[in-house]
Amino acid sequence: MRGLIVLTLATCVSAIVGLLAGATWFAPATLLAAFSQHHSDAATILWQLRLPRIIVVAVAGGSLGVGGALLQGLLRNPLVDPYLTGTSAGAACAIAIGVVLGIAAPALPAIGFLAGLGTAAVVALLARRGSGIDANRLIVAGVSVSALLSAVITVVLLHASDMDSTQAILSWLAGSPAGRGWPEIRAAVPYAAVGFVLAVAMSRPLDALRLGDQRARSLGVNVGVAQWFILAATSLLAAAAVSLCGMLGFVGLIVPHIARRAVGSGAFALIPASALLGASMSILADAIGRTIIAPSEVPLGVILAFFGVPAFLYLIARTHRSQA
């Protein structure tokens, strides 16, 4: 419980930092004033740019954190992330094709969402065994389908006729919330919310599944049904995240590991902890990306990789030292 309180406070602090930070830094008093005055420049920046952006980043990061916790528990594999189901590759491929075909930018997140879900469904069907899902087959199917779709993205990039299209595709691949706002939030948040509720509802079966399918079944878990619900929740969360921010790497992989240290491995605490940690890490990384070379931006995915991966490797090294 203490871990969840600390993570909630950390998310609030990250959100405040995210609202203050940008090409133009706000003083705290200016930020407070902007919340009450709707016709100042600061209010415009707050309501039209920073607040929606923070929500976008928080929902994407939190969704990936929860998706990672679900899939790592389901597959009993600490090295998988929610993109393993092919969601990101499917979304990126559809968006790349959409950009080249000249589809209007506002329609791209919805296309990415549907394609991501569709790809996850294909991967899940390929991994079907009996009434449930074969963990090894899911990994092989996910990696194979993702590799195939990545090849398609490369072909599309090579044949993109103009620089703008190439830039737009690369921006999705690098993971950036730039240009996303309230309409995208309204479209993606309901799906992320359904995924989150489903994840919390599946927390007890997930705890039992970590002991192995056979043991879970003998404890009274309907393993097949639980696997499908957990996979559906992961796919909804990952598709919502991809539609908001493109391909954000590493969040889904590292957040559950750090969250486990804070609240233990019980899924009922781990799922909200992963959501809070994913959100706060992503908000902070985005704040760094917006300010480090302002007025230009470094994509969120790049910042997360630069800061998140060394931090994760340090944690692993420290764990090995303490266990030795």
Binding site: D207, A208, L211, L219, R260
Partner: peptide
């Protein structure tokens, strides 16, 4: 990450 008590508590699932 599983603790001894976590494993034993799983027996209460049903």
């Amino acid at each position: 990450a599983l603790l001894v008590r976590d494993v034993i508590a799983s027996g209460r699932y049903a």
